[in-house]
Design a protein around this nucleic acid. Structure first.
Lengths: 172, 172
DNA sequence: TTTTTGAATAATGTAACAAGATTCAAAAAT
DNA sequence: ATTTTTGAATCTTGTTACATTATTCAAAAA
């Protein structure tokens, strides 16, 4: 078997043919999170396509490239990770605001609780969700259901305003 | 200034004093995702505390350890990443199911569309969300709003059932 | 007894490396 | 002339190695 080849121009693997189509860099990751991170970078988890109301061409091509219209739920719903928490809603006193029994509420403590915002308050150790209404120097907590009465915030003991509800997650 | 120290037992930084409290390993990450990954591993983003309805002790300790009751929205809402997509809801025909105009619907194409499920269907190129009702060998799409009439699925042209709605994200 | 200091040791970001993957044109085969 | 085979060239990729930084603690100094 004699030698083949010799000097050749243009030989070799071309740049940009890697798995991601872009350069990579080694980053030090705590071992318990390596699985999560690898799934994220390799299988484009967390990046789910978002469609409007017309059926788009090629809909719903499963693993194609969704350069546009891709949505990460965490980034979308949690703006300030360190100031955000979830609360499970109970009862139907806020049904008019689209909050149902058992819904998951996304609460941002870094937002200012201004007039008209839906807020989480604690009254005597119990968390509740109501709409904040400030008028004539007084503050009211208004249920969004005619079966429930407004609450005079000043009359309550042991109250605290915990944050503003930004999103409601309802399971079907 | 003379020399201090000398041989000492027990000197040196102790093991396990790293930022994460566990060993780390370098993992190669595509550059565009490095920011996202670093935020995830460093600031425990995506792991937001979940509370019930009583104010827990130490609530809401901002960056403490929430060993329990921590929730990742992506993992919670997207069970099958490759089979999931989002659709923006339009109109109020499903108001009774808690679906409002502008809500974000999480749709899983891997779930079977059985009787009673809320589904996404396309009719003549338009996406719509309705409740599936199968009876007497016929299939109906039922709006959850008395102002809208049921749709006879068989009578429509160019229809396709795209998936089952698992969650509704409503912004306030 | 308290404070200061620096040797010892681990953590951490990144460069470097070895092994594997990929391409393409020269050589061989048809 | 055309197609197939082959291996040198080059890039990718998981991991190791390393230089720098951070941290601790007991000896030395105050």
């Amino acid at each position: 078997m004699t030698k083949r080849g010799g000097k050749r121009m243009g030989a070799g693997r071309p740049k940009g043919t890697n798995h991601y189509g872009e350069p990579t860099k080694p980053i030090r990751i705590p071992v318990s999170k390596i699985d999560r991170v690898l799934r994220f970078v390799r299988e484009r988890e967390d990046m789910v396509p978002l469609y409007g109301n017309e059926v788009p061409a090629g809909f719903p091509s499963p693993a194609d490239d969704y350069a546009e219209g891709v949505l990460d739920l965490n980034a979308h719903l949690v703006r300030e990770p360190t100031a955000t928490f979830f609360v499970r809603a109970r009862g139907d006193s806020m049904i008019g605001a689209g909050i149902h029994d058992g819904d998951l509420l996304v609460v941002d403590r870094s937002l200012e609780a201004t007039n008209g915002k839906v807020v989480i308050v604690s009254i005597n150790g119990e968390l509740t969700v109501k709409r904040l209404r400030q008028a004539k120097g007084r503050t009211w907590l208004i249920p969004e259901n005619p079966d429930y009465p407004p609450i005079d915030f000043q009359e309550q003991d042991d109250t605290h305003l915990w944050g503003v509800v930004t999103n409601v997650v309802h399971s079907l």
